[in-house]
Computed example of a mutant assay.
Amino acid sequence: MTRLSDTRFSTLDLAPIRDDGDAAQALRNSLALAQHVERLGFERFWVAEHHNMDGIASSATAVLIGYLAGGTSRIRVGSGGVMLPNHAPLVIAEQFGTLAALYPGRIDLGLGRAPGADQFTARALRRDRLGSADDFPQDVEELEFLLGPRQDGQRVIAMPGVGSQVPIWLLGSSLFSAQLAAAKGLPYAFASHFAPRYVHEAIRLYRENFKPSAVLDKPYVMLGVPLLAADTDERAEYLATSVYQRILALIRGQSLVMRPPVESMKALWLPHEQEAVGSFLGMAVIGSPEKVRARLEVLLEQTGADELIFTCDFYDPEDRHRSFEIAAGLR
């Protein structure tokens, strides 16, 4: 059984925008959180690409990574992830090659195959690009080539990028990327922080089919986990209502700006909406330090994950900081 003391802890941030704030404040909060978890000894700090969402400020992912890496000194910084169908592989190779040149040994490139946006936004992002999620395996291969050593006669190079060997991770919420990561011998991150349904089957497929590669000799699994920790169970449940409201807004197609916690959700959702939010947060760890420890130990026993990457969308940045302090204190 994997023990908490042997498990790497990391952070996934969406740079959430509060109802009383703006994108600039959200980005400053993201940097403050990265600095905080760096001091706590976390392994990495990732940000995710989302578009056309008024409550998320991490759309220009590579730009934000540069800001975060520049404001920290040790922690690895990367994408969780870049939605590759939205971009030409050469552009991503140049962006992350530049980041790797500026912050050597600290940049990760996590890749997803979903657009991270609705169909209208996806069309606006790509314009005349003909690619789609179906091209993901070929796009990953092209990106690996562009970040690898320069070949004789290579006509297109990423500069910076060529020879950088920026570590690539495959991200997924279904089974497709698990199988691709296994075939390519790449580390795999499962998005159980919002889609826990296939987590066990995806991990099994990945481990059973893993082929050692030049970058990884055995499977490496990271799990996304919503971390909603506070000093008491009651406090954690109260703060978690901000998260419930945000997911409810996502389900309803409403504004995703962060809203303050409320004493009760009863008047805010219908029974089927409560059930949908609960399903979304099926892997959430909510409660006091004791409850969080017990939940994480069960999660590790069930999955054998090598690393946990936590999300925490509490309304107040200080409550977010405290949540990560509680997690760090469990190891």
Rank of each mutant, 00 (worst) to 15 (best):
A124M: 12
A124R: 13
L125E: 07
L125S: 09
L125F: 11
R126C: 09
R126S: 12
R126T: 15
R127W: 05
R127C: 06
R127P: 01
D128F: 04
R129L: 15
R129Y: 12
R129T: 05
L130H: 11
L130P: 01
L130S: 14
L130K: 14
G131A: 14
G131K: 01
G131N: 14
G131F: 03
G131C: 09
S132W: 09
S132N: 10
S132K: 08
A133C: 08
A133F: 11
A133S: 15
D134I: 06
D134T: 11
D134N: 10
D134H: 12
D135C: 03
D135W: 07
D135A: 05
D135E: 08
F136I: 06
F136R: 04
F136D: 05
F136S: 07
F136L: 08
F136N: 08
P137A: 11
P137G: 08
P137S: 10
Q138I: 03
Q138V: 08
D139V: 00
D139M: 15
V140N: 04
V140T: 06
V140Q: 05
V140Y: 04
E141F: 01
E141V: 02
E141K: 11
E142Q: 15
E142N: 13
E142H: 10
E142I: 09
L143E: 05
L143H: 03
E144I: 06
E144P: 03
E144M: 15
F145Y: 14
F145W: 13
F145V: 10
L146A: 04
L146I: 01
L146V: 01
L146N: 01
L147F: 02
L147Q: 03
L147W: 02
L147C: 04
L147Y: 02
G148M: 06
G148Q: 06
G148F: 03
P149Y: 05
P149L: 05
P149K: 11
P149I: 07
P149N: 11
R150W: 01
R150H: 09
R150C: 11
G153A: 09
G153F: 02
G153C: 07
G153M: 07
Q154F: 06
Q154M: 12
R155I: 14
R155V: 13
V156W: 00
V156I: 15
V156G: 00
V156D: 00
I157R: 10
I157Q: 12
I157H: 10
I157L: 15
I157T: 15
A158Y: 00
A158E: 00
A158Q: 02
